Computed example of a mutant assay.
Amino acid sequence: MLTDTIIQDTRWQQAGLETLADTAAIATLAHLGLNPAHFEIAVLACDDARIATLNADFRGKPNPTNVLSWPEEDLSADSDGDRPHAPDPGTPDDPQPLGDIAIAFDTCTREAHDQGKPFVDHVTHLVVHGVLHLLGYDHIRDKDATLMEAHERVILGKLGLSDPYE
């Protein structure tokens, strides 16, 4: 598997996060022309309390959020709207770590409900979003956001999911 999922909140097991995360990560890398067998990603499946602590520790924001990501290296583009730098691949026997993602069950559940989306679709989108962050994509600058959202739309469309930005 491309993803190594650490389940801290057992509700994620019932939701099938390990399969969702792997499917979303594989689709994201394949869309970008990267061989998923050459990379690995750690996914922490947690609750709002844990992600709030992580958000406070790493971003200075002591509140829960849906997903956080920590890239192994900074691959971000030099100019707004440019494609990020490509990661150096590993091998199937020694995959290159892309970084870590944490995802909060409570916030994901609440957002999916509030947005009238299936939980599985919302979580898949958030994992795609997190993987893109690991690969240097961001949404702070306008052109970067446009590029990232375009990739999200295409990846999710290939997975048979609706446009999350409509």
Rank of each mutant, 00 (worst) to 15 (best):
T124W: 08
T109H: 01
R110K: 13
H129Y: 15
V128Y: 11
P118R: 14
L98Y: 11
D121K: 03
D100P: 02
D114K: 15
P118K: 11
L98N: 09
A104N: 09
C108N: 14
D100L: 12
E111V: 04
L126G: 05
V127R: 09
I103G: 01
I103A: 01
L126R: 14
L134G: 13
L98G: 06
I101F: 10
T109W: 00
C108S: 13
V123L: 01
Q115G: 06
I101V: 15
D114T: 13
H129I: 14
D121I: 01
L98H: 11
A104S: 15
D106T: 09
T109E: 00
G130T: 14
C108Y: 01
V128N: 12
V127N: 05
V127F: 07
Q96N: 09
G99F: 07
L132F: 12
L134P: 13
G116A: 06
I101N: 06
L134N: 15
P95D: 04
F119S: 02
F105H: 02
G130W: 13
T109Q: 01
I101H: 10
T109R: 01
A112W: 07
I101L: 13
D100H: 07
A104P: 09
F105C: 00
T124D: 03
H129C: 13
Q96L: 05
T107Y: 02
D114E: 15
L98S: 08
V120P: 01
F119M: 11
G130Q: 12
Q96H: 11
F105K: 00
D106E: 15
V127I: 15
D121T: 03
F105E: 00
H133V: 05
G130D: 13
Q96W: 05
I103V: 10
H113C: 02
T107R: 04
L98C: 10
G116L: 09
L98P: 08
H133M: 02
P95G: 08
V128H: 10
H133P: 03
G130M: 14
H122P: 04
P97N: 04
D121L: 00
H122K: 13
V120T: 04
F119Q: 04
T107P: 02
G99L: 12
H125W: 14
D114M: 14
L132A: 12
F105D: 00
V128M: 11
D114L: 15
L98E: 07
P118V: 11
L98I: 12
G99H: 06
F119C: 04
E111G: 01
P97M: 05
G99W: 08
H129Q: 14
K117D: 09
H113S: 07
R110F: 02
A104D: 07
D106R: 10
V128K: 12
V127A: 08
A102D: 04
V120D: 01
G99K: 03
T107C: 03
V127P: 03
R110C: 01
H122T: 04
G99S: 06
D114N: 15
I103C: 02
L134R: 15
P97Y: 04
P95H: 06
K117T: 10
H113P: 00
V120I: 03
G116P: 07
E111M: 10
K117M: 15
Q115S: 12
Q115H: 13
Q96S: 12
T107D: 03
Q115M: 12
F119A: 04
V127E: 05
I103R: 01
V131T: 15
V131N: 10
H129N: 12
